[in-house]
Amino acid sequence: MVTCIFVVACLFLATISSCVALDYTVGDSDGWGLGVDLPTWKAGKGFLVGDNLVFKYVLGHTLAEVNADDYTLCTAGSSNSTYNSGYTVIPLTTPGEHFFICTVTNHCAAGMKLRIIVWESATTSPPGTSLPTPPGGSTATTPPGTSLPTPPAGGSTVPQIVYSDAPVTPLSYGVLALLFLLL
């Protein structure tokens, strides 16, 4: 009886933890600025629809969400909005690739740009995107002529969801399955 209650409680907690939207402060305490190592910051993070990107930056910088071509060229031609308030929250409402740049002259070229991949959920992949195997084991289809992004650090091909800068791995699901089998 106690084991059944424990397993039900674990399943309940796992369900709740997988439904919580997360706020990611871009660049952590360094914020959105020149000299911030954004590729290292985003490594291992699993961005999901419903999460938010929080951009904190000093006045004089800007933020624009752009398309892939404008990201590569460091232009804001495709941007619907450019923000310059010093604090901007971008809700991640659609799966796929998202691109952000600073539109101040030469800032994007100096590395003030961010490309992320947003997943629909922890078990599905964004449409039209080449992705590593997501949590839960479903496999994304790779369109011809495309390549997979670099897997997260540590050799794992499963993105991790990060809360308060502490990674949470899919290992808990394996532990829950093992507990269930032990019943």
Rank of each mutant, 00 (worst) to 15 (best):
M1Q: 04
V7K: 02
S17W: 06
S18Y: 07
C19Q: 14
C19T: 14
L22H: 08
L22P: 01
V36D: 05
D37H: 07
P39Y: 04
A43Y: 06
A43I: 13
K45T: 09
K45P: 00
L48W: 02
G50M: 10
D51Q: 11
N52V: 01
N52F: 14
N52M: 03
N52T: 07
L53A: 04
V54L: 10
V54P: 02
K56A: 13
K56G: 08
K56L: 13
Y57I: 11
E65N: 08
V66G: 05
T72H: 03
T72C: 11
C74I: 09
C74N: 05
T75G: 05
G77A: 08
S79Y: 09
N80E: 14
N80Q: 15
N80S: 12
Y83P: 03
Y83T: 04
S85F: 09
Y87R: 12
T88Y: 02
I90S: 00
P91K: 07
T93C: 03
T93K: 11
T93F: 04
T94P: 01
P95V: 03
F100K: 07
F100S: 04
V104Q: 15
T105I: 14
H107A: 04
C108W: 06
A110I: 11
G111H: 07
G111V: 04
M112G: 00
K113R: 09
I116T: 13
I117P: 00
W119Y: 15
E120M: 06
S121K: 12
T129P: 07
P132D: 11
T133C: 07
P135Q: 12
G136C: 05
G137N: 06
A140S: 13
P143Y: 02
P144T: 12
S147A: 14
L148C: 10
P149H: 02
T150V: 14
A153W: 03
G154S: 15
Q160E: 14
I161C: 11
S164L: 15
D165C: 07
P170I: 08
Y173T: 00
L176Q: 06
L178V: 11
L183C: 10
